[in-house]
Design a protein around this nucleic acid. Structure first.
Lengths: 240, 240
DNA sequence: CACAGCTAATTGTTCAACAATCTGACAAGG
DNA sequence: CCTTGTCAGATTGTTGAACAATTAGCTGTG
């Protein structure tokens, strides 16, 4: 145990009080996913069935089914007879994430000329949202807006499956940011790049937009990997 | 922990991280997945917990966790308080599947110049496997070889995540073939196309290979959708 | 035929129990 | 000092039963 003053107990208890849902399992998965995003659970942290089940007031079976879902989303890693741990993406994982993101997002932009106006508007809206967050120095909001920007980019392809895949990839990206302790300000410098991509899309210059997005990927990935190098390997027995 | 820079340390560490051991749940999921592929369970068929649990001699809890996994792979559809059904991909799903496949596979081919020789060899091996199956009139083998061909194409990108995503997409494609009752001979005409793509890759002509693959996608998708039209909508309450 | 109500069947969730396995501490021996 | 074996405690894996919640099917009535 890292701390005796485990504050996350309170947060989970609070989450328990806030509502019901159709399926307990999905509710539990939603809560845990949210807590992972917030950073309540650190990457690599072990999640004990009994304790968390007790806090959320769900049985171990229900909790385990929720863990399965999160495991399939790569947010937690399940080790036989050892338990589930919050995933800890490695530098290799970062490179892998960017490979898939390049394939999906660049492809979406390439076919953007056939996308409906509403899709391109959604991209622009995400950029505006980020700019407003920047004005209010709302760093958390900037990160969220940036994620929404890339979701909107992907949505240009008009594929439910691509949308869901991207949601998962971006969820993993959040873990990456947590690991390298890069605060959400990391996203701020890319706002101008996002704006430019959005403008190019609105102008129908999809080829230029694609090139700009590709350049963004190169820079962002390199910067992340350098940050990983500086931080060094997180730990010896890092799961995930 | 000091710096033990001997390489076997890494190997052991990697082996440990990769080591997922057999659990009942995954075994059950494997069995059910196999039965769905074989056609033992028809698309749309309901899978009752009690009955299947009895046959496989596992408890309902274990079976339900396995169902969660298959649901996340889109092989079954879970309806609250109604049960799980074998997925029944619609014509829209087929179009969606091809959107993602285009993004991933074409991207992989585009970057094939940087892929290791072994990857291109794997593509050629899959084609050869299909040709041999054709000679033996082994229709099932042709379908399998075709799947392996596209897996090998995707693997050129060198991304674990892309590989896994493609495995899932191809699993869904099997359901599509079951639905339109297209026997595996459906794949046979595309063997020559596969051979050509493979040869172009071996010759390093990645752009031509990409164009050939794109043409294949267009034809295959159109043929599938036409078959769907002929068959008409499968049913009124088709889950999927 | 439509339809409300009742019953049976099925799933959702919890609980308690036991088996299998990991963890950590501690003693024995080199 | 370091390694190794052993043992007890803790945690997960799996089962089976129980009950609640919801759906599906049937029945009688108008």
């Amino acid at each position: 145990m890292t701390q005796d003053t485990e504050e996350w107990v309170d947060r989970l208890a609070k989450a328990r009080a806030t509502g019901e849902r159709s399926s307990m399992i999905e509710w539990v998965a939603d809560v845990l996913r949210g807590q992972i995003f917030e950073g309540t659970f650190e990457p690599g942290q072990r999640l004990r069935e009994e304790k968390i089940g007790e806090i959320l007031e769900v049985s171990r079976n229900t909790l385990r089914e929720a863990f399965r879902l999160l495991g399939h989303e790569r947010l937690v890693v399940h080790q036989f007879h050892r338990g589930v741990f919050v995933a800890q993406p490695s530098a290799d994982d970062v490179a892998d994430l960017y490979r898939v993101r390049r394939a999906l997002e660049l492809s979406a932009v390439r076919g953007a000329s056939g996308a409906p106006r509403s899709g391109i508007d959604a991209v622009a809206a995400a950029v505006t949202e980020g700019e407003q967050a920047l004005g209010g120095e709302d760093w958390w909001g900037i990160g969220t807006a940036n994620m929404r920007f890339h979701e909107a980019i992907t949505a240009l392809a008009g594929s439910r499956r691509a949308d869901e895949i991207m949601r998962q990839l971006l969820a993993e990206m959040r873990l990456v940011f947590h690991i390298m302790k890069a605060p959400r300000e990391f996203h701020a410098p890319y706002l101008t790049s996002n704006r430019r991509i959005s403008d190019l899309l609105s102008a129908g210059r999809t080829e230029d937009a694609e090139a700009a997005l590709a350049a963004y990927f190169d820079i962002a990935e390199r910067q992340l990997l350098e940050a990983y190098d500086r931080g060094g390997p997180a730990g010896p027995d890092a799961p995930g």
